[in-house]
Design a protein around this nucleic acid. Sequence first.
DNA 1: GGATGTGAAGTAGTTCACAGCC
DNA 2: GGCTGTGAACTACTTCACATCC
Lengths: 232, 232
Amino acid sequence: MATPRLRTRKLSEPTIARLPVYQRIAEGWALRGLTRIDSRQIGELAGVTPTTVRRDLAGLGSFGTRGAGYDVQVLSERIAEALGHDREYDVVVVGIGNLGRALVNSTNFLIRGARLVALYDIDPEVVGTLVAGHVVQPLTDPIVAATVGVICVPPQAAQEVADRLVGADIHALLNFAPQVLSVPIGTAVHYVDFSIELQILMYHLNNGTGPLGGGLLHSLGISTPNSLRPVT
Amino acid sequence: MATPRLRTRKLSEPTIARLPVYQRIAEGWALRGLTRIDSRQIGELAGVTPTTVRRDLAGLGSFGTRGAGYDVQVLSERIAEALGHDREYDVVVVGIGNLGRALVNSTNFLIRGARLVALYDIDPEVVGTLVAGHVVQPLTDPIVAATVGVICVPPQAAQEVADRLVGADIHALLNFAPQVLSVPIGTAVHYVDFSIELQILMYHLNNGTGPLGGGLLHSLGISTPNSLRPVT
DNA sequence: GGATGTGAAGTAGTTCACAGCC
DNA sequence: GGCTGTGAACTACTTCACATCC
């Protein structure tokens, strides 16, 4: 345990949802060879006000430079620290259909400390095949030890899979099935529901009122001035 | 236009994010043959307090029955109304990789008024094939008229695709690429980023502090008492 | 009895405005 | 000059507590 101290004083829920976005932005600038970014620029790209950006970042300690903004490298590191990206953790994925395949093959899903350790499926056609460097195991096999379980099965099967994962002592679930899960207290479930995203988008469109400029989290409604278009 | 009036007085952002969740729950109960549900039950399943549920629903007009809760059928309809599900709208999907395929083949993505009208891809291997009842068109083809564009391409290509969609007069984008998009003012972009979901989940796990019982939206951390387990 | 719907109170998050520093 | 960091003001959301109605 290399000095795990100073795990930043607790951040608010909205803040932790925004930090990964800022980090993405910082990495984007770093890739383009830029070294500094200010709160106004981050804000416009993320769809929030500069003040909100500064508040969020101030919560990680003072590392900006007055008059000059933030160093993208430092910014990225500080966020990684705050979010606990130094820690590594194991991930199992259950359900290797199109979605499961998309996730494990994506270069952007299993990043920042996440390590894929096993894949499970129930379909005999799929079991035994090699996906993303792992042989797909039958669901009847014992579930290996892991920190996070990702559920990509049809909704009817989701609860049963959740039970198996919890039974295997996995207490953090990322559920892509449109199905509310019942789990014991102490287990965290995080839902991702594509149709809900679409529904929220449509609500805003119908009512005009939406975050067409400034929003929250995924609801990041962005209307970026072309002045900030990435230079090509 | 069949009396589009009484589009409910504006709902708060957190509320509209929760409504689809309530609706899912109501539909689940209806499927199991149950006809009534109360705010406590909805709350436990959705990971919010009963009071929050009642406030959210009160915003859609009074349709609960004191002493007996809500009729799941009516509940579902009222939410549909409030969210504008009566309106139909056209959706195009760009990028027919694993993710795009998973989305269009899912029985749960294109629901509630969403109608798939076209698929586009750049890969000659994919163009011309039949996916979800549509022949995949080359990206060089003109983009058909639609309301929503779904972007499932690699991050490097996302901005270019967004430009094409906006150029085709599509002003609502659902972006699955981990890439901040620049679009003209008036265009709504909604981001879905899987790795961010994972990161938020891990933050909560590391800090214990998380929504292990009660959260928000996707962050619906749920610790459902087994008393509410669906009866099998 | 039991659960809704809602004023009133409380809490959390955002934005203002400016002092402080580069 | 410019931009960060933050007390103070404000706004939005949630929770309490209870009157209201089935």
